[in-house]
Amino acid sequence: MPKWNDLQGRSFLESNARDRAVGLVDEGTFTELAGPFDRFYSPHLETLGEAVEFDDGIVTGVGRVGVTPVFVISQEGKFIGGSVGEVGGAKMVNAIRLAIEFHDTLAAAHPDLTDAEKPIVVISFETGGVRLHESNAGLLAHAEVMDQLQKARGKVPVIAVIGSKVGCFGGMGFVAAATDCIVMSEFGRLGLTGPEVIEQEMGKEEFDSGDRALVFRTTGGKHKYIVGDCNYLVADTLGAFHDQIAELATKSLADFEAMRRIGSPEKVAQQLRGVALAAEMQPKDARDVWAHAGNADPVALTDMPLPDFLAQVKRLSV
């Protein structure tokens, strides 16, 4: 395991799931749960004669940021695209469940528990969703994760961090949307149906997945920041993500509720104003929306360094 201090300067995009899990919490605080030495690999991949991994491509554990207990879930894109199967799905579900249970235990033991002392969950997404080799089990695990996210409401804030190569797509795209707060780097990508799938189903006219710039404009961190689908856009280092989590860890449940996109009738009403705008605009390109948000030169935003971007970008309000 690399030294924690070295990890902080490391590119988030280039970091593997375990390094992210260790680096997102404070130095020396991470304890892995169901780690590789427990050897819980996928029995279904084994049946199919596919290579297995001792952690099934998902690192789960608990650490601390300041005084906040942090339950970490970190997906490994290099292992079958970070896909979710029975074992990895169970780890994910149970990490959130443990956080809720721990919250309840602490709240009962300490009536004066402060916001900072309450546990949070951090999910580092790098996935296309369901693992096809065990698709049915993967699908059912997704439903369990959504159930746990709702059960965490009003108790345990859940933070999504997205800045890894594979991005966050498929069913995990709406899992991320259902968290309280989303932190991305500009290299992070978030969506539901991947561009390749859209092209395959609806044709190149609908979405040319070979146009990498278009793909990034549509699903990338800058776009998601402009439309409000991510709350914070940070630099591509583990340290930047860690520091953002540390800042968030002291916030109140009300603060987190305000950061949500969905999860109440009011939030849905707000999203529907965006949908009405989509119907009216029929944007051909994410840049149309950037311009609508008040960015006079949307083309310039793409390559703009992050500090300049954050200083001058106008975000969509509906």
């Binding site: 709406f174 899992v175 859209i198 999203q271 989509a278």
Partner: peptide, 18 residues
């Protein structure tokens, strides 16, 4: 779920999540 570019631009993932 709606597989379109407009859907991805405005965040289809939120509607299904909601």
């Amino acid at each position: 779920n709606g597989p379109g570019k407009v859907e991805e631009i405005f965040g289809m993932n939120k509607a299904t999540g909601a």
